[in-house]
């Protein structure tokens, strides 16, 4: 059992994080053309709504929730100190989880029943569907059976996650958790590790800078005033070719 715990709770996270980090940077730097959300709305534009929208908003909330708890566990505990607020958090998170699951199932059905989509679907798509559905189901299961997740996540799991990032992995507490929770942890790190090899990678490039970017973009190959300055021969300036 110790071997398994060590493998899945220590080795797997480090491998997954290393693969995620190196793979994503490599793909971003050298494989820009493959960096795409690969939207299939253009081929099927109706059923997508009932899959993509509930899934994405659900996952956005759930992921942010996990991230906030990971970054400021005390904040979550403070929020949960009042039962009403705890209920609000837990119930809304559960609803978003359900929304994720419904979205995923709709997406899965859509992708495999629309003839056109077969030609923009690869094996990895199936793998990530399965992983995400498994992850969502275990997440919902845990939230329903082991209450209240938001609280014990902050006290039990966050220290474990912090210990991973501090390079002093401590699984003494986590290894005693039920197997469903472990499955959820394993699923999470598998998904992280698979990001550079799948379309999931598009979550790394959310267009946030669009919010403050000016609408119009004009680019010059080099400083347009410098071009004509005799003191700066062109050869000194490598053109900024994107």
């Amino acid at each position: 059992m110790d071997v398994l715990n060590n493998f899945f709770l220590i080795a797997l996270p480090y491998v997954a994080l290393a693969v995620f980090l190196i793979g994503s940077i490599y793909r971003y730097t050298y494989k820009g053309f493959q960096f795409s959300s690969l939207s299939s709305q253009f081929l099927e534009g109706r059923k997508l709504f009932y899959g993509s929208v509930p899934f994405h908003w659900g996952v956005l909330f759930i992921f942010t929730g996990h991230l906030v708890a990971f970054l400021i566990p005390r904040g979550i505990l403070a929020w949960n100190s009042q039962p009403l607020r705890l209920m609000i958090l837990e119930i809304s998170a559960f609803i978003f989880g359900i929304s994720m699951l419904v979205g995923l199932i709709n997406l899965l059905i859509r992708r495999y029943t629309t003839p056109r989509l077969r030609f923009v679907t690869n094996k990895m798509d199936f793998v990530i569907y399965m992983l995400l559905i498994l992850q969502t189901i275990t997440g919902l299961w845990i939230a329903y059976n082991f209450r209240w997740g938001s609280s014990w996540f902050s006290t039990l799991l966050v220290p474990y996650l912090h210990s991973i990032f501090k390079l002093q992995p401590d699984i003494s507490a986590v290894s005693l958790l039920p197997w469903t929770v472990k499955l959820h942890i394993i699923g999470a790190f598998t998904i992280i590790g698979i990001v550079p090899f799948s379309r999931l990678i598009h979550f790394l490039v959310p267009p946030i800078d669009y919010i403050w970017r000016p609408y119009q973009q004009v680019r010059w190959y080099w400083g347009r005033r410098k071009v004509r300055s005799p003191r700066t021969p062109w050869s000194l300036h490598r053109p900024k070719n994107n």
Partner: peptide
């Protein structure tokens, strides 16, 4: 983006994310 030199509007294929 629009190219400054000649005003041609282009899509950088390496940056497009299919939004």
């Amino acid at each position: 983006y629009k190219r400054g030199e000649d005003g041609v509007v282009l899509i950088n294929q390496e940056v497009c994310r299919a939004w």
